[in-house]
């Protein structure tokens, strides 16, 4: 676990370094007449210092460090589940404008329920339909929010 924590610290260090490097391309100015890049440059450097201190502290620490409880759960199949879940979210966002809100709402719920282990199709479809229709009436018809109508034109 300690090794993982060190890697996370290094990733943060790299983020700080990238920020600092990118801000060097902007006008820096002086503290009295700050340029566009000054503030982000300072932040980048500060983040590098902090994360370096963090990593250093981990190296020097001999005791076992606190392990967050969420990391303990590692069951086979969960990786696949989370990849499918996130992938579906991405797809839904990608087609959000094209397909329109009510259809996306329906398809999204169908897919997510399936991924999370809703075995019975009848229940799945029914639940998704009810959700899609309810949210459509709530958001589009009643609150008049300009959600994309998309292909079905609702």
């Amino acid at each position: 676990m300690k090794r993982d924590e060190i890697i996370v610290g290094m990733v943060i260090f790299l983020f700080g370094a990238a920020t600092a490097l990118l801000s060097l391309r902007m006008p820096i100015g002086t503290f009295r007449m700050a340029g566009t890049g000054l503030f982000p440059l300072c932040l980048g450097i500060l983040l590098m210092i902090l994360s370096a201190a963090f990593v250093l502290k981990l190296f020097l620490q001999h005791k076992k460090i606190f392990t967050p409880k969420e990391t303990i759960v590692k069951a086979p199949g969960t990786i696949k589940q989370i990849v499918l879940f996130v992938g579906t979210l991405g797809l839904a966002t990608l087609f959000f404008n094209k397909l329109g809100y009510p259809l996306i709402a329906f398809l999204l719920i169908v897919a997510l329920l399936r991924i999370l282990g809703m075995k019975r199709w009848t229940w799945n479809i029914l639940l998704s339909l009810v959700t899609a229709i309810t949210s459509y009436f709530l958001f589009v018809q009643w609150l008049k929010i300009p959600l994309p109508k998309g292909w079905i034109g609702l």
């Binding site: 839904a92 809100y101 999204l108 719920i109 997510l112 999370l116 959600l147």
Partner: peptide
């Protein structure tokens, strides 16, 4: 149950 609640939360958040 969470398996139903989670998709609803997602739809809620996206909307």
């Amino acid at each position: 149950p969470k398996k139903i609640l989670l998709p609803l939360i997602i739809l809620f958040c996206i909307t």
